[in-house]
Amino acid sequence: MDIQAFVFFFLSAILIFASMRVITARNPVHAALHLILAFFTCGGIWALLQAEFLAIAIILVYVGAVMVLFLFVVMMLDINIDRIREGFWNYLPLGAMLGLLMVMEMGLVLGSKYFQVPAADAMIPAGVSNTKSIGVLMFTDFVYPFELASLILLVGMIAAIVLTYRGPKKSKYTNPNQQVFVKAKDRIRVLQMPVEKD
């Protein structure tokens, strides 16, 4: 077994373990942490496949930003395990259906060799920057889908604000402009007091 295969199996073992723990851990914070580990290991496997841009991107975006906010929320929640367990049988049919769908999709992807789908030649010639080629493709051939995706994200962002906005709140705040332009004589007054005699 060469070193590359060894690294692959090592990372895969961690990835599978972490993914299992995401759904079996009782403590939601532990589950979130295992999800972070899963993303990180996934980045490692992608780097092994010479997709270094994707590998760094998943760590930058998912581990560095998305999961921080996720963890932020999970830590603040007061999660009652028993109450979550109550709904188990109600949600089972929907969950089972989704699970089956995902298994089918994964089977189609993994079985592409068996179904004899012509695979793209993934070997990268030396001296070609992965990052650069993705950038060039993104801003030439795929510029409309790319812009469309960013528009969808913008809509999602505005939707989240609209859904949670409860109108202006009466809150005390200080206006930074006024703070900056404040003068000493607005705040303190120096008085001249003659010395009192007897």
Binding site: E52, I56, V63, G64
Partner: peptide, 25 residues
Amino acid sequence: NIDASLLYIMAITSIGVYGVILSGW
């Protein structure tokens, strides 16, 4: 001397926040 070293730096330094969050929790 990797191709995307700036991206690597940004990715790795963004992980540093976990130490702070987890220690607090």
